[in-house]
Design a protein around this nucleic acid. Structure first.
Length: 826
RNA sequence: GGGUGAGUGGCGGAACUGGUAGACGCGCCAGACUUAGGAUCUGGUGGGGUAUCCCCGUGAGAGUUCAAGUCUCUCCUCGCCCACCA
């Protein structure tokens, strides 16, 4: 008997599938479409490890399953090759990023081909291809024309190691998401995209997505919508007594009577205009100190409140009270108006600040649940529901009600209005690096910023000797005067090119729109073809993109919808986040996420060599529920390999003796197998599909069942069931069987629910909820009959003897071929 | 601090709308075959006991129910995310 000699046929079938077009997908195919997409990788120098494999195997299994079910499946792959990771890898190896990237892509493409994934390689592209990034630039130009791109000098997050500015979304705990260096603030002239204009729609449309709740929540929190009121206070300058208005934002206008001071962010422009000249030095020192604080220092929750009274006062518009104006770094310039009214009685931060600086605390919402000192003063700020006190005409009003009424009164006096605020900021789109799409604008002395016309796109990256970041806040492109100096497309006069490049996220924010029509020369893609394929039916990737990539992509699609370039306004109908693969780290001895720096990676190449790619595929799925973090085990993969060998042996043996029909029990097991595989593929329970396949092989190879007749159809069915998971294995045995052309042109068989039923039911008898006996009855026995047999059973009789039967419950369950009888005795 | 998800054998994990807890696999034990086995096959494997039978068992405690891993409440532990957003 032939061994499971995977090394002799895996490569052969991959070539065969590619040559015969299993890996191509036609836009004019009449079958219903299914667009199954992986988050495309950036071509890292170290290649892929088995943790990356998990998502790719998962989407490939879905693609093959959908193909067998009769869908026309689009399952493309490409490369996110611009950006910091690719450039940093190139710099480290001292190879030009273009060359290095191509090399890395070749390696990863080879690895991907080895899992036998049915990617549509004829649609492959890289975000660095000029024919592709022409349209990345075109999208930017259109945003610029619609006023969604603007340049502004502002303090941004500066990564000293990557030597570039990075987006708010890229700063994690004050560190650069990419390299882990501590991010500082640097004032730079930056291109920004007004993603905030789409905040409301980005928030509302989350509801219509079939995404994991966790990701939806993360996006909602990131957008961070809050409702409240702008309230206009009057400031009295300590310099000359002059008056001027300033606005604060509050979500609690109902507590306005409890405002005992106001706070400006240290950077607030009005501070220098109204502060007491005698305090200028103290204020300046504080502003300098606050500016030097890193994000880590500043956001440390345990940190004491700090601040300076600037010597000026503000007038509260509801009661004319005069309250002191402070500056403190707990108020952020970037949110709301950069100024707040402080209500220490009902806000934790204000309470802490007021306590430290001896500022009065006035309760305006009364609750008898508030924690109080013996003298009646508050122990802490209370934010409990209640009725208003100390609030003039509003006393006794419910706080919710008072929100509306006080806001309305302010509006009537022209001193405020209802407003909505978002935590989300505009997107910092400039990078001071070489390896990115050039921002396609020129600065003309006469016309200002002018977009490069579509006919002159793409603006190519100039070939350079030195592409390393300068660290000066300018891109390396700024040093190439023959590239920088150009003419204005509008007036023909002298102009300078923008030298910043786009962020890594630019190319990945619309790549899913390109696969349906990757060669399109006159637009992002043909609108009719796009309409046929979009939106993506299944998008598979890691949860680390929950905010950045997924939010940016949604923003791009909504913008393209608005300018009429696409006919849908959400890109991904269904999202699936695969869990990480962890393994014990050689360095720390702890179970950690698999990564090169942790020294705990397992490369797919070595596993493929030892066990074959199908065993690796099955193990990736068997390791645990696909959405959960799972631990790699070198031992468990042996178990899968054993199963593969057993299944191989059974198929070859069964082939010899297979007849025209099945024993009834074999037929039943076949239908159970189809049912389990179908249902579990549809619900992403991949780990238990393998259990079902194992159960079938355990049944089929059990000595007790050696005499049962097995049909050829049953053998073929088993191969079809395993084919999405172990395609090479299934194809090879399909040919051994002489079953004809490729297994992937077969139809996924239906199952007959009735045939999965057993002829008998197991009756489980409980006495007052405890299992006391079991016996078999013919299937579909009547409840009364089952009850009678249960009470007559001798093992049951001794429990009932001398007791009174209070109640008997009979619950047949045809689904599990069982019935339950619970006899309640007293 | 806020939010959120999860706690089941020695281990990874099963368990549909509440209805036989521990599927499947790993590991372990015993046996077969063998010069040998870290190959393969067969059987066993939650804990405890006066062992064809009984008791206890899904992080802890309460509750609802004929019946709870599953539903409700309180608490503990761990993971992840956000973290002065007014």
């Amino acid at each position: 008997m032939r061994d499971y000699d995977f090394e002799n046929f895996e490569a052969k079938w991959r070539e065969f599938w590619e040559e015969t077009g299993l890996h191509t997908c036609r836009n004019d195919d009449p079958r219903p479409k299914y667009y199954c997409l992986d988050m495309f990788p950036y071509p890292s120098g170290s290649g892929l490890h088995v943790g990356h494999w998990r998502g790719y195997v998962l989407s490939d299994v879905c693609s093959r399953f959908k193909t067998l079910q009769g869908y026309n499946v689009l399952h493309p792959m490409g490369w996110d090759a611009f950006g910091l990771p690719a450039e940093n890898d190139a710099i480290k190896k001292k190879i030009h990023p273009r060359i290095n990237t191509e090399k890395n892509i070749d390696n990863i493409r080879r690895q991907l081909k080895e899992i036998g994934a049915m990617y549509n390689w004829d649609r492959e592209f890289s975000t660095t291809d000029p024919e592709y990034f022409k349209w990345t630039q075109w999208i930017f130009v259109n945003m610029f024309k619609k006023g969604l791109a603007y340049k502004r000098e502002m303090p941004i997050n500066w990564c000293p190691s990557c030597k570039t500015g990075v987006a708010n979304e890229e700063v994690v705990n004050g560190n650069c998401e990419r390299c882990g260096s501590e991010v500082s603030k640097k004032s730079l002239n930056q291109w920004m995209l007004k993603i905030t204009e789409y905040a409301e729609r980005l928030l509302n449309d989350i509801d219509k997505l079939d995404w994991p709740e966790q990701v939806k929540l993360l996006q909602r929190n990131w957008i961070g919508r809050s409702e409240g009121a702008d309230v206009v206070f009057k400031a009295i300058s300590a310099r000359d007594g002059s008056e001027r208005d300033f606005t604060v934002y509050t979500t609690r206008p109902d507590t306005l009577f409890g405002a005992t001071y106001v706070v400006f962010a240290p950077e607030h422009a009005m501070v220098s205009e109204i502060c007491d000249p005698a305090k200028e030095k103290e204020i300046k020192d504080y502003i300098d100190w606050a500016g030097k604080q890193t994000d880590i220092d500043r956001t440390n929750a345990k940190k004491d409140k700090t601040g300076v009274f600037i010597g000026a006062y503000a007038i509260n518009p509801v009661n004319g009270e005069k309250v002191p104006i402070w500056i403190s770094d707990y108020v952020l310039m970037g949110y709301g108006t950069g100024a707040i009214m402080a209500v220490p009685a009902h806000d934790e931060r204000d309470f802490e600040f007021a306590t430290k600086f001896n500022i009065p605390i006035i309760e305006v919402i009364y609750s008898d649940q508030a924690k109080r000192n013996p003298d009646g003063t508050l122990v802490e700020a209370h934010i409990i529901d209640g009725k208003l006190i100390n609030s003039g005409d509003f006393n006794g009003m419910d706080w919710q009600d008072a929100k509306e009424k006080i806001t309305a009164q302010l509006a009537a006096k022209g001193r405020g209005r209802k407003t909505v605020n978002y935590k989300m900021r505009d997107w910092i789109y400039s990078r001071q690096r070489y390896w990115g799409e050039p921002i396609p604008l020129v600065n003309c002395e006469k016309c200002g910023w002018v977009a490069i016309p579509e006919s002159q796109l793409p603006v190519l990256l100039p070939e350079v000797e030195s592409y390393e970041p300068t660290g000066t806040g300018e891109s390396p492109l700024a040093g190439i005067s023959e590239w920088v100096n150009t003419t204005c497309p509008d007036c023909g006069g002298p102009a300078k090119r923008e030298t910043d490049t786009m962020p890594q996220w630019a190319g990945s924010s619309w790549y899913f729109l390109r696969y349906p029509d990757p060669k399109c020369a006159d637009g992002i893609a043909d609108p009719q073809i796009l309409k046929r394929w979009m939106p993506v039916d299944l998008y598979v990737g890691g949860i680390e993109h929950a905010i950045l990539h997924l939010l940016y992509s949604r923003f791009f699609v909504k913008f393209l919808f608005d300018i009429g370039a696409v006919e849908f306004d959400e890109p991904f109908s269904r999202l699936f986040n695969q869990g990480m693969i962890c393994r014990i780290s050689d360095k720390t001895g702890k179970v950690e996420k698999m990564s090169k720096s942790k020294g705990n990676v397992v490369g797919p190449d070595e596993i493929v060599k030892q066990y074959g790619t199908d065993t690796l595929r099955l193990y990736e799925l068997f390791v645990g529920p696909p959405e959960m973090e799972s631990e790699w085990s070198d031992r468990s993969i042996e178990g899968i390999y054993r199963f593969m060998k057993r299944a191989w042996k059974w198929t070859l043996e069964a082939k010899e003796k297979a007849g025209a029909s099945d024993d009834p029990e074999t037929l039943r097991q076949r239908h159970i197998l189809i049912k389990n595989c179908t249902e579990r593929l549809e619900t992403f329970k991949f780990n238990t599909i393998i259990s079902a396949l194992m159960e079938f092989i355990n049944f089929a190879t059990d000595e007790k069942n050696a005499g049962l007749a097995v049909s050829r159809e049953t053998v073929e069915t088993f191969l079809i069931m395993i084919s999405p998971l172990a395609p090479h294995f299934a194809e090879e045995l399909w040919r051994e069987l002489g079953a004809g052309e490729t297994i992937f042109k077969q139809k996924w068989p239906p199952f007959d629910e009735a045939l999965t039923k057993a002829g008998t039911w197991t009756v489980v008898v409980q006495i007052s909820g405890k299992v006391r006996g079991k016996f078999d009855v013919p299937a579909d026995s009547a409840d009364a009959e089952i009850e009678k047999l249960a009470l007559a059973d001798e093992r049951i009789a001794k429990w009932v003897e001398g007791k009174q039967v209070a109640k008997v419950i009979v619950r047949p369950n045809p689904k599990t071929n069982s019935a339950l009888v619970n006899i309640v005795v007293k």
